[in-house]
Amino acid sequence: MNPRVKASLLWGVVGVLAFLVLLQGYELYSGYRYAIGLKVGTTLLVAVGTMLLTYVADGVLD
Rank of each mutant, 00 (worst) to 15 (best):
M1C: 11
N2W: 01
P3W: 06
P3C: 09
V5N: 07
V5C: 07
K6I: 09
K6N: 02
A7M: 12
S8R: 10
L10M: 10
L10G: 09
V14I: 13
G15L: 00
V16T: 14
V16I: 13
A18K: 04
L20A: 11
L20S: 04
V21M: 07
L22G: 14
L23S: 06
L23M: 12
G25P: 00
G25C: 07
G25L: 13
G25Q: 12
Y26I: 11
E27A: 10
L28D: 13
L28H: 12
Y29H: 14
Y32A: 15
Y34R: 14
A35S: 14
I36E: 14
I36P: 04
I36V: 15
I36W: 06
G37R: 07
L38H: 09
V40S: 05
G41I: 04
T43D: 03
T43W: 07
L44H: 08
L45N: 10
V46E: 05
V48Q: 03
T50S: 15
M51G: 04
M51D: 02
M51A: 12
M51T: 08
L52Q: 02
L52F: 01
L52P: 07
T54H: 01
T54G: 03
Y55E: 00
V56K: 02
G59A: 02
V60C: 03
V60L: 13
V60K: 10
V60H: 02
D62S: 12
D62G: 15
D62H: 12
